[in-house]
Design a protein around this nucleic acid. Sequence first.
DNA 1: TAGTAAAGTAAGTGGATACTTACATAACAT
DNA 2: ATGTTATGTAAGTATCCACTTACTTTACTA
Lengths: 197, 197
Amino acid sequence: MARPSQALEQSKKLLPVICHVFSELGYRRTTTGELAHQCDVRENILYRLWPDKKAMFLAAIDHIFCDRAQMWSEMLADHPTPKQAVERIVKFESQRQGEFGFYRIVFAALTETDDDDIRRALVKMYKRFHQLVCNQINAGREVDDQESDLPVEMAAWGLLGLATISNIVRELKLLPSNQREQMFAAVAKLLVGGETT
Amino acid sequence: MARPSQALEQSKKLLPVICHVFSELGYRRTTTGELAHQCDVRENILYRLWPDKKAMFLAAIDHIFCDRAQMWSEMLADHPTPKQAVERIVKFESQRQGEFGFYRIVFAALTETDDDDIRRALVKMYKRFHQLVCNQINAGREVDDQESDLPVEMAAWGLLGLATISNIVRELKLLPSNQREQMFAAVAKLLVGGETT
DNA sequence: TAGTAAAGTAAGTGGATACTTACATAACAT
DNA sequence: ATGTTATGTAAGTATCCACTTACTTTACTA
């Protein structure tokens, strides 16, 4: 035996770069040449880490979820009250959208849903994300003991929709950012709280 | 002079087919060869109707909006009360999603937003659509004279987000369709009405 | 230090694809 | 009819890109 493989470490190092390229260019327009260039390696090195371009994309989809989940957990590391937690997440999502290319990768993936692997990766991602949101809303509601009209699962889908359209609004500059944030906050409050305050 | 051009008529005839292909495959994966095949003409005939592939795509984006707007106006042709109108639209949108490839084309376009022409087409489309939704909500609210908490423009963005996530849920089969429709209806009611009934 | 496998370099290949060209035919005006 | 222009056919081209191959160098182990 000689020289242990550092493939895992290197792929972890390269993944953020790969995510960024995919989020900038989408799936089809991203060339393996461009990926290699941005990663500052040669193409065949990428092909030693992943069997093909699709695998690189799947890894990117997985990574963006883990990334986002970790951000949330870091944001809630100081154990705020559940209601504070929801408010903090809403604020975070409304303000720092787009920085991490989350939705751009999702959009890219959504145009490839006739590929079973990509579809599965997306389904998994959405289910986990929806669950995460549900948990937060649930926690927030239980404490206040307020029976809201909208079931938690539905509110969570509504929030995901809100985050999506808000990203589109940002992407296309359909509203100035302060208005977009206000919109996000107002709709989110309606969805989560049941009543506006 | 000889033989007047029927280019306009033919492009109108071909557009629905082109929309369908783009919505099935997205922008990049759609080849001009496939477009021609589905349209049952040769490639160069498409190139006589549009200067390039991008122009075909832009025409498709414009067409899906016009298509949808016309559907709505037909749906409201019998002059229902504004409140009925909103309910009808919500029901229509929640049930017949995906049939016309609207969101698939939007997703495809959203991964091409660094092209100015495509971005402009999308912006125009969203502004018109948002306006349309605003008008309907406004009409519905004025009649009832109920002051709702959520400003109309925000509610409209919320609805667009709801329609978007609902399409994703449908596309990925994240919920059975009856649950998806219930979710759509519940969230829409919350957004539009202010209170649930 | 010698042997071995990973890490890196550089060039290629085969297929796909946006767009073109050259030419034949069909329909309309005068 | 006849000239003109739209419409149709079929082949071609130049480029791009996912993926490969053949080779050299490096670093670890025993």
